[in-house]
Amino acid sequence: MFMTLIYTSLLISSIGIFMLLSKKHILSILIGIELFLNGINLFFITISKSYSDDIANIFILFILVITACEVAIGLAIFLLNQRINKTIDINHLNRLRDE
């Protein structure tokens, strides 16, 4: 059970890394980051079950807050990029600097 959860978390994180590195759509990249962090959350909770400690729950709550903030800001930048540059390609984000 322990190793199942650990390997599941690692696999989800690896898929997140793959998505983060291989896609150019900003939404796909954000989903990749979310998947990676979800895998890490699962890893934390599995480890905390061995220590019988509540601290991982608190860390995961903070991770969820930070992830929600990151998604909100990322999507705002995505919409701004689409509105100004008329593209959703992440390679054109640097054009926002000149505006």
């Binding site: 690692l10 696999l11 994180s13 690896s14 890394i17 793959f18 590195l21 291989s22 896609k23």
Partner: peptide
Amino acid sequence: HKPFFAILISFLFF
């Protein structure tokens, strides 16, 4: 885009 590089990195991580 660059799927082999991404597979390599994620596989190495795993």
